[in-house]
């Protein structure tokens, strides 16, 4: 079955995915900060037993950190099925749907984190999936819920809805023209935040950014999503305008960059992660601008390559530990084998 990131969704020229995360805690256990190892194990086991018995999760794959090696955990983190926080936990478990679009993490910063992904811009579906899983889980384990404060979380920054909704956006034009810094600094006023997905700080190879809500209390889930969608919509329009300008003013340079990138991706024999992400970003923008034909634009998700070339997914695919050069060779081979042919 195709995983969510292997397909494109609405507005996929700019939007890679819509994601919703819900933070929930179980009433009778202390929160992570005050949860000793024994209670954590007990909480994980009981919750897993409850959830594994749900008919709704029958086709989900269960995992427990006791049975996973470091490579498997890192690879899951690279594919976003588990969070970095969970990956670094000693004890943890969870469930993942067959398409890897819904995942339940147990013993995260909050006892339970429910996460759903949808390709492209479709936060309504993403919320619906997460909320449905939440309804099921809430019937089997008693949540920590407060009439005034809503869903109680370890951090005050998530209390209330416990919801973090985010779009993953491909913003090469805004990023390349230096407009992003200004946009990022303005977002706080709307209770939103933007971060880079690959890389840290201002450097963002691949030009992939995540925009999410920061406030979680006082507004309904729908209001929070509408607010995020409204602002994201404006950023998407700005990005499209930027790309059109680029094509209008520098069409030859734009086409040259996209085709050159394709050429290197197609023929390189070794690639660093950073170089590969930069090239894939150029190629992705070329696809979105229709340089390689309409069918290609709609049919091919470049993001699946961006995930596939991450170090732990490559090592897992090769089933062996790779040194840096071997990793770069494996990366070039993976891209060669999975890059679509252009006419």
């Amino acid at each position: 079955m195709a995983r969510w990131f292997e397909n494109n969704g609405p507005d996929s020229d700019v939007v890679i995915s819509s994601r919703v995360r819900l933070a929930r805690n179980i009433r009778d256990y202390n929160f992570s900060l005050k949860l000793d190892e024994k209670s954590a194990s007990d909480m994980i086991d009981k919750t897993m037993t409850e959830l594994s018995g749900c008919a709704e999760f029958a086709d989900y794959t269960g995992y427990n950190f006791k049975d996973l090696n470091e490579y498997q955990k890192h690879a899951m983190e690279e594919r976003h099925t588990i969070s970095r926080f969970l990956m670094e936990q000693k004890y943890a478990a969870g469930l993942v749907s067959p398409e890897e679009d819904v995942s339940v993490m147990i013993n995260e910063e909050d006892h339970i984190r429910i996460q759903s992904f949808v390709s492209g811009r479709d936060m309504k579906s993403a919320y619906h999936k997460a909320s449905s899983a939440d309804d099921i889980i809430g019937r089997h384990v008693p949540y920590a819920y407060h009439e005034k404060y809503g869903y109680l979380t370890t951090c005050l920054s998530s209390v209330g809805t416990g919801m973090r909704a985010s779009y993953m956006l491909h913003l090469p034009a805004l990023s390349g023209t230096g407009q992003l810094a200004g946009i990022m600094s303005e977002l706080g006023r709307f209770g939103l935040k933007m971060t880079s997905v690959f890389g840290e700080g201002s450097s963002s190879p691949g030009d992939i950014y995540r925009i999410s809500n920061q406030t979680t209390l006082g507004l309904t889930e729908q209001e929070l999503i509408d607010n995020l969608d409204n602002i994201a919509g404006q950023i998407i329009e700005q990005e499209r305008l930027g790309r059109q300008q680029y094509m209008k003013l520098q069409q030859v340079a734009a086409e040259d960059a996209a085709y050159r990138s394709y050429g290197v991706l197609r023929y390189a024999r070794k690639l660093s992660l950073k170089d590969a992400l930069v090239l894939l970003s150029e190629f992705r923008m070329g696809l979105a601008l229709g340089m390689f034909g309409d069918n290609m634009e709609k049919g091919y998700s470049v993001y699946q390559l961006m995930i596939g070339i991450q170090p732990y997914n490559l090592q897992l695919a090769c089933n062996s530990k790779l040194e840096l050069t071997e990793l770069e060779v494996a990366r070039a081979t993976f891209i060669r084998n999975n890059l679509p042919q252009i006419v």
């Binding site: 209330g160 209390l217 309904t220």
Partner: peptide, 20 residues
Amino acid sequence: DNIRRIHGSNIHTGKKYAEA
């Protein structure tokens, strides 16, 4: 007051939870 300052409100109005 601090809750209000970071979230703009101190009262949850979203999804309600009713235990089974």
